[in-house]
Every structure is written in structure tokens, then in C-alpha cells.
Nucleic acid binder design. Structure first.
Lengths: 242, 242
DNA sequence: ACGCAGTTTGCGGGTTCCCGCAGAAAATAT
DNA sequence: ATATTTTCTGCGGGAACCCGCAAACTGCGT
């Protein structure tokens, strides 16, 4: 049995290496990659079936890497090991998990034992292991306000990229008014009308910009999700020149 | 001699501990804090004169912590040890350094030797040590486009928080038109008019939102700078109820 | 088949943004 | 002290945003 570690921080990498060796005595090969693209390459060359992957990496982030790996071999088992439980990451991951694949999401702050247990459950038992706090985000509301639907999340990304209502409409195949409708819902859920819950500050905010702001502060968006979408947008733009 | 380490990642913390001990044999006490507020507290209690501080921490980030520490004892020597050279961090740090204080900024990706050398230079020689890549950001242009002036950076923060032109004007004591003027300059420098350098996409973007977007993508803004400003804004709002 | 909740769309309007133009004011240079 | 550059300001207008209202169009359960 072979395990591939994809993690850019050398300290964390060697820690993971040790953890894997001690949790999985049946594992005789551990290989390491120090960023997403190296990870993809190694996974392909070695037909890696068991991967531990960091999410936040410089060259190419974990979600990107996982997506291409899973596209090539959907039965690959991947344990995501991340510093954060940002909704943006969680959403990003659960979007790309193939049907029925075994995967895990464990926070770096978790105990040694939790990590080792997760390694065994996923790689040997083929089970999904999702950390408590992550699970929370995946399902229910983040705060008192309801969580965003998929289409609300889409427009959120679009305005975060700086798109116009008109362009959003074209991109999502909607009418202008529908886009604005979704924005309204978004504004509502993000509580952008009464910014700090204070009455009397109604006119202080540019709703669109404020929405992006609170989304970032609430970790609904993070930088890498933005980067990803920016690339996506770029591609879309180059297809749709009229 | 005593050194205080403020770092939330346990692995990095113990690595730092070792590095300090080996680089500074004259150091007999090393104490550790696992977040910014604990760091402030320990610094106060122990009158710490030598601190190594991570920037990105959960509870209270390094810049905040450093600011209050320096406010109490400006001669404290602080070495910032960070994963990133985001302009937002660099700017944040150089804003709070007291006159003539010795400090350092070293990236986590730097070599062992570089870190140890920096430790000795700052703590023993009272010199400033700033990493190459950081230094670059501090002074000249980030890319081909000129770097932002202080006032452009201010409006950037304001629109990133979601403020209205009108509120910005009140907050910065300007006329409405002046605010919009600064925004225009900002848009120019951020190259928001021809988004990807492509001719013919002129109308695709909401300039205000796009500006924030590219600022984040270019690391002019990061999440913690936003959080800081959001607090600031909150305070300002509560003072200015009319 | 019926009703009901949630989406989508058009229309119309008030508001804010974005900015060219041009004169005042302030900072800087010579 | 004068010239030059930069920044600030008011005015005006076109475009984009935000949204209430009301009519179609889903989907879903009974």
C-alpha cells in the first residue's frame, strides 16, 4: 500500500509522513509532493489510490488538484487536511467529490488520534470522515440567518468578481430582473440592509460591495475560491466574444 | 535574555523554539503563546523585550497584537515570521512600527540559516531585517502599474467594506466629487477598465466591485486587513450617529 | 385536477455610481 | 514670488443599480 502526501509546508509534511507511517503499518511507500501540480503529476505516475492533501497551497490549490485527480480516477481516496473550515472550502470540496467516493476532511487543529483514526477509516475501511465543525457548515445555517442556496452562491461569486448585472444575466442565462431578484435574496440573507444589526444605518452601504465584504468576513468566500472563479470567468469571456 | 514566541501552529511553534535556542545560546528563557491576545498578555506580564510573532492567527492577529505591545513598550523588538508577503500585511506592519524600533520580517519559506541570522541581528544587534521579497513590495511598484498612494489605499478599504461614496466623503472629510476622483485614480491603477488587458470588454465590469476583486487577487487586500477595518468602521459609526 | 410555494420575467421609478469639464485651492518646484 | 503640478470641488448627465408590483411559469404534494 502506498500513500501520497500533498502539502507545501515542510513541517506539516514531515509530520504527516510520520502520522501515516504510524497509523498505517501496512503502508510501505510514502511519497510527497510540495504543491498541487506536483501532486497531480505524482498521483498520475504512481496511480496513487490514497492521498492526503492540504487545501491551501501556493502553486495549485488542493481543490483543483483533487478535481483533476478524481476526474482521472474517481475511486481515489483523498483525505483533506486543512487549517480552516471556511465555508468556501467545504463547498468547494463537496462540489467535486465523485459519486460514492470515500474522502475525509480533517482540521489541522484536530488531535493526533483523530487524524490517525481518519486515515485508517478512509484508506482501509473506505468510509467518509468529516470533522465535526466542517460537518456543521455543510448542513445547517451558519449563524441565525439561513444558509445560501446554490444560485445565491453563484451570484455572490459573480458580484465578487465584479461582474455587471447584465453580464451575470448573460452568463447564467437569466433575465436582468431575475439576477437582481437573486441579488435581493442574497442581500437579505447576508443582512446587508442593517449592517451591524443597528437600526438607523440604512443608507450607509453599497449593498453589492457590502455583500461581498460580509461574505468574506463570514468566510463564505475566500481568496482561493475567488482565484478559481476568476480563471473560470476568463475562460468564459474568451468563449463569448460577440 | 528571554524570548517570547507567538504562533498558533504547534508545529511551527516548536520549530521556532528550537531555532531560537540554537541561534541564541544566551537566551535562557523561551516562552510561548498560541495566539495574539495570549501573546499580549504574556508580553505585558514578562515585560518581554524580544518577540517572534506569526502574523496570521485566529484569535487576534499579529499586527493587532504587535500594535498594542508596541504602544506599551515601543522599544520591544519584534520579528514577524509569516507565510505570506501580501502587500496588505507589509503595509499593515510598516504602519505600526514605532519610530526607530528594530523589527524584522522573515518569510516562513526562508532557510533555517536566514531565520537564525535574522534572530541574532534583531535581538542582539538591534538591526532591522526585512526579507528580500518583502522589501520589494515595501518600496516600488508591484507590477507594471504604479503602486497605490495612501489615500487611494484608504478609499480602496472603504469600498471593500461596502461604504457609499457619500459615507466615505463624510468619513474622510471630503466632498463627494473628491471621493469619486480618488476612485477614478484607483480604478486606473488597478486596471479595471480593460479587465484582462483585452480590448473590447469595456462594459463587462462593475468598477467598484471589480476593483475590490483585483485588489484581493493581487494581495493588496487580505482578509485580516478587512477584519481590522471592519472593526475600525464599526467604532467610527458608533461615534457618528447624527 | 387542484392549489400552493417558489422562480422568473417585464415595467417603471428612485437612487447611486461614474465621469468629463472647468474653475478654485493647495502643494511643490524654480 | 511666480510658475507648475497636483488635488479638491461643483455641475450636469448617462448608465447601472436597487426594488415594488403584478403576471406568468415552474415544481410538488394531495
Amino acid at each position: 500500500m502506498q500513500v501520497l502526501i500533498v502539502e507545501d509546508d515542510p513541517l506539516h509534511r514531515s509530520y504527516l509522513n510520520e502520522a501515516v507511517r504510524s497509523a498505517l503499518p501496512e503502508c510501505d511507500h510514502v511519497i510527497e509532493a510540495e504543491n498541487g501540480s506536483a501532486g497531480e503529476k505524482l498521483a498520475r505516475e504512481n496511480k496513487a489510490a490514497h492521498i492526503v492533501m492540504d487545501l491551501q497551497m501556493n502553486a495549485r490549490n488542493g481543490i483543483e488538484a483533487a478535481r483533476t485527480i478524481w476526474k482521472e480516477r474517481p475511486e481515489t481516496r483523498i483525505l483533506f487536511w486543512s487549517n480552516y473550515a471556511d465555508e468556501a472550502y467545504v463547498r468547494g470540496v463537496s462540489r467535486i467529490v465523485p459519486e460514492g467516493a470515500a474522502y475525509g476532511y480533517v482540521l489541522k487543529s484536530a488531535s493526533d488520534d483523530r487524524l490517525k483514526l481518519a486515515l485508517r477509516s478512509i484508506f482501509l475501511e473506505n468510509q467518509c470522515v468529516i470533522d465535526r465543525e466542517v460537518r456543521g457548515l455543510q448542513q445547517r445555517s451558519h449563524t441565525n440567518t439561513g444558509r445560501l442556496t446554490e444560485s445565491e452562491y453563484e451570484v455572490l461569486l459573480d458580484i465578487a468578481l465584479g461582474l455587471t448585472d447584465n453580464v451575470i444575466a448573460r452568463r447564467r442565462n437569466l433575465s436582468l430582473r431575475s439576477v437582481q431578484n437573486r441579488l435581493q435574496q442574497l442581500y437579505g440573507k447576508l443582512e446587508v440592509y442593517r449592517p451591524y444589526g443597528i437600526v438607523g444605518d440604512e443608507g450607509s452601504f453599497n449593498l453589492r460591495a457590502r455583500a461581498v465584504s460580509v461574505a468574506i468576513l463570514r468566510k463564505l468566500l475566500n481568496v482561493s475560491s475567488l482565484e478559481r472563479e476568476d480563471q473560470e470567468l476568463r475562460r468564459w469571456l474568451s468563449r463569448h466574444r460577440d
